[in-house]
């Protein structure tokens, strides 16, 4: 049976219908049209679906939509403000921290969460923070440099 799920997405209150088996990622992509968050593995290994749930980074493929009723969700679509990229997004471009771009929304969101908690992380802290995000293009070095440039 479908249920009404009410949540705040990127500061805006949204409502959608979801069966219990629908994940938060599916709700964002198919129910709310926010296709920035990607599905890579669907089981929590790749991090491409990372969003902030009540301020903390989570794999949105491992969260049921019905679990987040009343919660606050922040996605990659919420980062750029009035057309201007967030400094972290700009740093990924400046340092070549992406190639195909599929993992990028997840990496940016987990890096954003790290910088919220720890504004000046060491390289080791950045590497540990992004360990749950797979990237097959960059070899991670450029991603680390991009995050360090902002932190």
């Amino acid at each position: 049976m479908k249920r009404v799920v009410t949540l705040t997405v990127n500061g805006e209150q949204r409502q959608a219908l979801a069966e219990p088996r629908v994940t938060l990622l599916e709700l964002l992509r198919d129910g709310l049209g926010l296709t920035g968050s990607k599905e890579g593995c669907g089981d929590g290994n790749c991090g491409a679906c990372t969003v902030l749930l009540n301020g903390r980074p989570v794999n949105s493929c491992l969260v049921l939509a019905v679990e987040v009723d009343g919660s606050d969700v922040f996605t990659i679509e919420g980062l750029a403000r009035s057309g201007a990229l967030h400094p972290l997004q700009q740093a990924f471009i400046d340092h070549g921290g992406l190639q195909c771009g599929f993992c990028t929304p997840g990496l940016v969101m987990v890096a954003y969460a790290l910088l919220q908690e720890n504004p000046h992380p060491t390289e080791q802290e950045v590497r540990m923070a992004i360990a749950g995000n797979l990237c097959r293009c960059t070899g991670y070095d450029k991603v680390v440099r991009a995050v360090m440039a902002v932190g």
Partner: peptide, 9 residues
């Protein structure tokens, strides 16, 4: 256990 994302949940 797991990654940052996993440990949030």
């Amino acid at each position: 256990v797991g990654s940052v994302q996993i440990r949030s949940r």
